[in-house]
Computed example of a mutant assay.
Amino acid sequence: MAGLSGYDRVYRGRQLDSRQYQDNLSEKYYDRDFIRPLDLTSLPILSEENYQSDNDIAIKKSVGIGCGLVSLITENLLIHPFIVLRRQCQVNPRATTYHLVPITLIPVMIRLHQTQGLNTLWKGIGSVLLIRGLTLGIEDLLSKITPWPKEIDNNSSIKAFGQHILLKCVSIGIVAPFYSASLVETVQSEIASEKPGILDVFRDGAIRLLEVGTKGRLIPIYALLTPHITYGVAKYLFGLIVRNVVTRIMFLRDRRSQEKLVKLHATLISMCAADVAFYPLETVLHRLHLQGTRTIIDNLDSGRSVMPLLTGYNGAFDCYRTIINSEGTMGLYKGFGALVLQFGIHFLVLKATKYILTEIGTIFKTKSKVVKTPGQMYYNDA
C-alpha cells in the first residue's frame, strides 16, 4: 500500500524476518503448522448408479449360473420318470389308452408306485446318463483326431458346418447299439425282468452290435442306422434353428437380458419344439429298436400288470403304415401327455429357481454407498 513500503512486518508488536516469512509461507506461519484444505479432487467418488449397476450385474450372473445348474439336474434326473412313461407308451402297440394328456397318467403313476415302488419310475437312469456321457466323449474324441469342429457358431463357414454335421452322424451311429440297450432298460418291467447292472448297457450294446444277422424278429443294428442317424441329425438341426431364432427374439425384446439365462431358455424351448415335432418318428424308431428283444413292459392301461412286446415290422415305412392303419394317427403320439409333464415341470422348476435366487440376491444386496463431499475437511502436514 502507498506510504507503507518502508515499514517492517510485525505480528503482535514483534518484528518478523521477511526472509523467514517468505521461505516458510507454504508450511509455517510464525513457527506454527499451517493447516491447508484437503484436496478432494483425487478422492474416488462412488456413484450410486454405478454401484447399483455393478451389483445388479453380479446378481444376474449368479442367478444365471444357479438356473443353469438346476436346469442340468432337472434335465438329467428329475424328469426321468416321464421319459420312462413316455417310452413305455410309445412302444406298446396293444395299448388302448393313449395318454395324450397328462391327467390320465396321474392314476397310473400312483398304481405303479403302489405295486412296484417308486424306483420303477427311475429304472434305466444309470444307462441313460452313461449314453449321454458316451456321446459327449465320442464327439470330443472325434473333434481332436479329425478336423471336424465340435461346436459351430454364426461365423462358421459352410465347410465347417458340413464337417460338424458329419461329426454328429458318426457319433450318433457309434452310440446306436448302446442306445438300443439303454432303451430296453428304461421300458422293461422290474417285476418281470432281472434288474440290470450299471455297466450292462455296454455289454448288451456290444452284443447287439455283433449280431449282424437276423435273429428271429430282431432287426440288425446296421439296418437301423439310416433311420436312427436321420432322426438324430434332423432333430438336432431343427433344435439348432429354433434355438438361434428364439435367442435373437429374446435379445431384441430386452437387450439388457442376462446372456446365460437367455441361452438357457432358448435351449429349453428348442428341446421342447424338437421333441414335439419329431415325436412320431421317435415312436417308430423306438419300436424298431425293441422288436425281437423279448422285452416285457408295464401295462399302462391299468398300471397293475405286465405284457410282452410282440411286433413284426419290416422296416421304418412298414412300421409307420402299420401304426396308422391299426392304431390311427394318434397312435404315433402315444404317451404325449408324459412329454407335456416333462417340459411343464422343467419350465416350472426353472422359473421357481430364478424367482428364489433373485429374491435371495435382493435380500443380501448391500445398500448403495455414496461418498459425499464434506463442507470442511483439513489435514495436518506435520
Rank of each mutant, 00 (worst) to 15 (best):
Q22R: 04
P220Y: 11
I363E: 03
V245T: 09
R12T: 05
K372P: 00
A338W: 08
T97H: 07
C89S: 10
K215L: 13
K150R: 15
F336G: 01
L310V: 07
L252K: 10
L72G: 06
I360R: 06
I145V: 15
M109H: 09
T41H: 10
K215M: 08
L281H: 07
A181Y: 01
G64M: 15
L252R: 11
L166V: 02
T230Y: 08
R9H: 09
I35F: 07
D54Y: 11
I35Y: 03
G6S: 15
I57L: 14
R217M: 08
K372Q: 14
Y379H: 10
T135W: 03
T295D: 05
Y355S: 05
L348E: 03
D39Y: 10
R94N: 09
K365Y: 05
I73F: 09
S26K: 13
V101F: 06
I191T: 15
Y333P: 05
K260W: 07
A316W: 10
T267P: 00
D17Y: 06
K235T: 03
H80D: 01
I241F: 14
N299H: 09
S326A: 07
V245P: 00
Q342D: 01
S182R: 04
T247E: 09
A266F: 13
Q90N: 03
I131Y: 00
L268C: 07
A352M: 09
D31E: 06
T226R: 14
A382F: 13
Q258N: 13
L121V: 03
Y222H: 15
N155Q: 14
Y313A: 11
L225N: 02
L332W: 04
H289M: 13
N24I: 05
V242E: 03
L224Q: 12
G303W: 11
D254V: 02
R132S: 04
K354P: 00
F251D: 03
Y379M: 06
I363V: 14
E185G: 02
T226A: 10
W122F: 15
V245K: 15
S193L: 09
Y355C: 04
Y236S: 01
I249W: 09
V91K: 02
L167N: 08
A277I: 10
L40W: 12
V284R: 11
I345T: 08
I131P: 00
A273N: 01
L288I: 13
P280A: 11
S5Y: 10
D31M: 03
T366H: 14
V187H: 06
V63N: 04
C169T: 04
R304G: 08
S270V: 05
N155S: 15
T267V: 11
F364A: 05
I106W: 13
I191S: 13
Y222D: 01
G197Y: 00
L46Y: 14
F343H: 07
I158S: 09
N55C: 07
P149D: 12
E211N: 14
I297W: 00
G117H: 08
Q116D: 12
Y51P: 05
N155T: 15
S127H: 01
R321F: 07
K260A: 10
R255A: 06
Q114M: 07
F251I: 11
L290V: 07
